[in-house]
Nucleic acid binder design. Structure first.
Lengths: 215, 215
DNA sequence: TCGCCGCCTTTGTGATCACAAAAGCCCCCA
DNA sequence: TGGGGGCTTTTGTGATCACAAAGGCGGCGA
């Protein structure tokens, strides 16, 4: 098999496959319950079963994929209990991340958040669920990067990953065309240096979208 | 290669290796910075490189092992910043888990916790670091199982896993022979149904041990 | 005696293969 | 026409191999 580059940076072929699959799952590119096969993934990315297996097993370890008792893997179909739990985890982790980012949030960061937020609004207007999820996650990640807490951010991303397919199902179901209200509250709290307000705004933003899955 | 049983339950050979390694790491059986090799692990557990590789890569994905840029794996040597972050994560997650477990904590559970806690004290008295860590984690897990929050508990265990080798280094360094004081506070708060007290006791217990690593 | 260069060994990576189990499928019969 | 049994294909698992790169070690020179 011929690649464009013999060694694509640190890591290897399985890392490329892993990253591609991870991004697709996190952005909601794959519907819940969709099955994946080792040979299929390998064929799709031009690698043998070995890197495909490593990528898939890694995603299983992170909770992004579900491994049936017979070894078949598929994207998970979450129960309501699990969704509530994951929402609670998002709330716990992201409130803390935002709070830690607050003292370091200068005006340049806030400007960037506002730009990203307009991209969120645009995706919402165009009813582009994948674009909406991607921009929304970028908004949150940009803020949390300032917290200088890599382990915590990694955990938050793991939760996003587990929610990816479900978020797709959610956002394609509800027809929202307005940009998220709570993002504006987050930005306002950042500008004002208002920590309790920021915590509340983040918790509301995180909880709001996921709460309407109980229906 | 001959096994005692052709199919050891759900999963397979790699699952057995994974579980064994995971337990050893979480209990602090392996010192920080210790290197592992695929062929070495395979030889130790009587399997080929494939299951050894899957187990190790899974532990890497969970943060239990560190993967150098050249592909070598070793148990991580945590920086102080990372230890503080992981302690904060433990605090966030475990306070929430304890709080959720409180309404369901009946007398039978409290009795069991007291029994486990005496095992903790005994291990401390015998200066048995691995036994101490194991009993201590069992104390916490027994309580959190009552929270009925599997995703949250899994995250907490992932943090324990990342801290395993470091906890070993910590507990073998300091010569404590007394059972943990905060466990008694946890039990007392559970008996009294005192939620704020429980939150404080859990946070103190989690933070206390890890804080003295800054030295 | 100390440091550096080159060789040999160890190690991870990806590919391929044999095997068994699971899944899907089709045909036949009630 | 609907369901069940058996066959074929698909799929995951573990083993093994070839290869390249990294590591370690010893010897040689200054």
């Amino acid at each position: 098999m011929i690649y464009s580059k013999p060694n694509d940076g640190p890591g290897a072929a399985h890392d490329r496959v892993y990253r591609a699959l991870r991004t697709r799952i996190m952005h909601g590119d794959i519907a819940p319950g969709q099955a994946l096969t080792l040979r299929g993934v390998g064929r799709e990315y031009g690698v043998s079963m070995t890197p495909a297996r490593e990528s898939i097993r890694r995603l299983v370890a992170e909770g992004a994929l579900f491994l049936s008792s017979s070894g078949r893997v598929s994207t998970p179909e979450l129960t309501n209990e699990r969704i509530e739990e994951l929402a609670a985890l998002r709330s716990l982790l992201e409130v803390e991340l935002a709070s830690r980012a607050l003292p370091r949030a200068h005006i340049a960061l806030i400007d960037r958040l506002q730009m990203i937020n307009s991209a969120v609004g645009e995706a919402a207007h165009n009813r582009d669920s994948v674009g909406y999820i991607r921009a929304n996650l970028e908004f949150h990640r940009t803020l949390y990067l300032r917290a200088q807490a890599p382990a915590m951010l990694a955990m938050a991303e793991t939760v996003w990953l587990q929610l990816g397919p479900t978020m797709r199902a959610l956002y394609s179901r509800l027809r929202r065309t307005d940009p998220p209200h709570f993002h504006k509250l987050i930005i306002a709290a950042l500008k004002a240096g208002d920590e309790p307000g920021l915590r509340l705004a983040v918790r509301s933003d995180v909880t709001h979208g996921l709460r309407m899955l109980a229906s």
